[in-house]
């Protein structure tokens, strides 16, 4: 029971403070992982992949996923409802005076600071995924610089980045490609 209450509170906060869409929820999911230990950073990276490859908004998909692995069907209903509740409340209020909101100086000025902060937060989340996918922190602790970098993975990352810049296809294509490469070259070993 208390788990469901924590789910509701954490995802309500995520809905209320994540600004800038999809990826903006990711830093909050790391924060929830740190606080509760419900899932690891590796689980989270897997969830992001599933959320990007299925229909629906990424933020909604991720909150459903977290809710489900923590408390099953009830959990995913609660976490997702909690995520969208602040949106419903805020938009219903703003819808009444939309034009005033658009022209508000305070709103625009706040966003002057919020957008770069959001960039920094998501960048930090990206760094956490780098730590579990491209490098090997344990090797560094043992003083082994050579196996610090995971060469196969880094090459794949560079290839995918070039493909994205060149073709600009839907993420699901790159995810499928990466999965195939992972199986063929035994990435988990």
């Amino acid at each position: 029971m208390s788990e469901l209450i924590i789910l509701f509170i954490e995802f309500f906060k995520t809905g209320l403070f994540s600004i800038g869409g999809g990826a903006a929820t990711i830093p909050f999911l790391y924060d929830i992982s740190d606080k509760t230990g419900w899932y690891t950073y590796t689980d989270l990276a897997n969830m992001i992949a599933v959320s990007e490859s299925t229909p629906g908004a990424i933020g909604v998909n991720m909150s459903t996923y977290v809710g489900f692995i923590t408390s099953g069907v009830i959990g995913c209903l609660i976490s997702t409802f909690a995520l969208v509740l602040p949106s419903i409340i805020i938009i219903d209020i703003i819808a009444g005076f939309l034009d005033k909101f658009k022209q508000s100086k305070y709103v625009n000025n706040a966003f002057y600071g919020l957008r770069p902060a959001s960039t920094g937060l998501i960048g930090a989340a990206c760094f956490e995924i780098v730590k579990i996918s491209l490098i090997n922190i344990d090797a560094l602790k043992m003083g082994n610089i050579i196996s610090f970098f995971r060469y196969k993975e880094i090459i794949l990352a560079v290839v995918i980045f070039i493909l994205i810049k060149k073709f600009n296809k839907h993420p699901v294509f790159y995810i499928a490609f990466a999965a195939a490469v992972g199986i063929v070259f035994n990435f988990a070993a």
């Binding site: 990826a23 992949a49 998501i122 993975e153 995810i175 992972g182």
Partner: peptide
């Protein structure tokens, strides 16, 4: 193995979002 590959892809996708 597939998810180990996919995590690399997620890394790049988020970098691109940044």
């Amino acid at each position: 193995n597939a998810f180990a590959g996919i995590r690399v892809c997620v890394c790049v996708l988020i970098f691109n979002a940044v």
